[in-house]
Design a protein around this nucleic acid. Structure first.
Lengths: 332, 332
DNA sequence: GAAAATCCGGAACACGTTTTCCTGGACGAA
DNA sequence: TTCGTCCAGGAAAACGTGTTCCGGATTTTC
């Protein structure tokens, strides 16, 4: 029993080595209290020598905060949640906050479980994000919550969302500035709010230039290709096609090329998402709308930090999108 | 000063309501100690009535564990880290463990920072993952660590890696079973270990049937398209092309179709990764190798739990891949 | 030289839980 | 009745830190 298990040194060990009390050591390391500089330095050296790392569990207990926030996502496999997550993590880590990840896999039971776990961990706040732009039921926890991408149905909650409307309108204005008037729109399922909004905004911006009706389908290249056939049969004079996603736009480009129509000379095409693997691999590369999701994640995190700090900002914050112009409208 | 700020109820509140001491309440709720069933029930009811949620910070302090593990990833935007992360999170959450996410963005400084933070949080263990299959420097922390995807250079560390060799060989055997003998290989940069290994294994499995040399390039559709031109010029009699990634394979298929060559009737094609957005959108859909990364994440997490529990399993664990057969080799 | 102001550092407590040890009572056996 | 055994539950310590308060020492002031 001579040698006990080695322990990571605590503040008491540091204090002992420096010849002071634990409380003095705490003050020295946190630059608080009234201490002689010499003492401070002595403690610092002792801490360094022992490789002291403060135990944040103790700190959390003492401070009443955990310096942790939870991220609840209904689908982290999706390409929307990921950048949001990364942006949030980035902003939080700057504030010495850790992010614990909870993927509910769209299961309400799992969500309840995770919420309970986060409450139990006394996280300082929670970010809730989803895959759709439809508003979602607010979560019921005694902890600050901010919603990202999928807003809360309660308008008094804090939500950060994408400006689908502005994004769609920006593609139309861009095309109009290039002299394209007759504009069509191909997008995903009509049941998706984002598809509806983008379609409505596109029609609104194109005004009388809009040809036919929005073509609703699915978020796939296959649908994009098929939609071209449908569209050209009905509206052979179309000058530009705005698409609800880059996948659709890529399908549109592929089909147009197969039909011998030049993009953008004959018909200009725009996408939505700036999903690089689609937008850049498309032939030609796509002019598209970047939702700046990573920035959205950062903003969300900072908003959450504000709420935690006691200065909440209620309501929906709509973040602007950015138009990325490439060959599919500009040519080479 | 009559009413204090509302607090979330602690175990003492539960104990008071049930008319017992805090320690008794703890025993009742944890099914430990010697208590009358009636007392247990009384405490449970009190806890429920108050909506009591145990504070895991206190528990962590008392138990010496934090029930938290860290995940260090050098690139979480990449499509390899994500599934690993999700698999790990899945396996860990089953064990009531939380996962804190640390994206180093390939910056050694950030990595150091995160490691320090995780040590400070006294996480029970750390998972380190990367974007490449090359071995990486081990991290230096007094905490159990398991490496996923990118193994540690120290063979005594615990690492879980993908069977690149077996995956490549499985595509060749599949093609041979379909009667294809003359097999070529198009892959990414020769500087990438995974490209080298997949190429070597392909050649080894194809034996004398291998035509020419492996074509090294980049992980892009563009390179896949270009490689077809190079290959057909040099080896017009090739019967199958195995590719180092689905992106390359998709490019290969596209170019072959443009040249009027049928896939798979004239030339069969295989990919690698089973990246659905590539493999399924390709025309035709790709036979490819699924690295089962989510399973890899789960296995990694379970291995870490073993290490934490005190039964480490040292060395490299090579996880098998799964061949997914689709029209690019089978036809319709 | 004495009183007052200032500075430094330590003791004690708080945070919320678990765990170890202990006590008082009930009960059975001799 | 007395002793021993067993059981239910309480008191206290432990985990590691931050903070508040307080006393002693040193310096300043008259």
């Amino acid at each position: 029993m001579a040698s006990r298990t080695i322990r990571t040194p605590g503040i008491k060990d540091v204090a002992a080595l420096a010849g002071v009390s634990a409380s003095t050591a705490s003050k020295a390391l946190n630059d608080t209290g009234q201490l002689r500089e010499a003492t401070r330095e002595r403690v610092r050296r002792a801490a360094e020598q022992l490789g002291f790392t403060p135990d944040s569990r103790g700190r959390a207990l003492a401070s009443g905060r955990s310096f942790t926030v939870g991220l609840i996502t209904t689908d982290s496999s999706g390409r929307f949640s990921i950048p949001i997550m990364l942006g949030a993590e980035d902003a939080l880590s700057a504030g010495e906050m850790a992010l614990v990840l909870c993927d509910t896999r769209d299961d309400p039971l799992r969500e309840q479980h995770y919420l309970k776990s986060l409450v139990s961990r006394r996280v300082d706040g929670i970010i809730v994000t989803g895959r759709r732009t439809e508003a979602r039921e607010p979560v019921d926890v005694p902890i600050p919550v901010v919603y990202a991408f999928s807003p809360s149905t309660d308008p008094d909650d804090t939500s950060v969302i994408v400006d689908d409307h502005g994004g769609a309108a920006s593609t139309v204005r861009h095309l109009q500035s290039l002299g394209r008037e007759r504009i069509a729109h191909v997008t995903g399922p009509e049941s998706h709010l984002s598809a509806q909004i983008r379609a409505a905004s596109t029609m609104g911006a194109a005004r009388s230039g809009f040809v036919g009706q929005p073509l609703y389908g699915e978020w796939s290249e296959r649908w994009g290709r098929h939609a071209v056939d449908v569209l050209l049969r009905a509206e052979p004079t179309v000058e530009a096609i705005t698409c609800g996603s880059d996948q659709i736009a890529r399908g549109v480009c592929d089909r147009l090329r197969e039909l011998g129509r030049s993009v953008p000379d004959d018909i200009a095409v725009t996408g939505f998402d700036n999903w690089s693997v689609m937008a850049l691999a498309s032939r030609p590369p796509l002019t598209t709308v970047d939702m700046e999701l990573e920035e959205l994640g950062r903003r969300t995190a900072n908003l959450l930090l504000d709420v935690i700090a006691g200065t909440p900002r209620r309501g929906q914050l709509v973040l602007p999108t950015r138009l990325i112009t490439r060959e599919s409208t500009l040519g080479t």
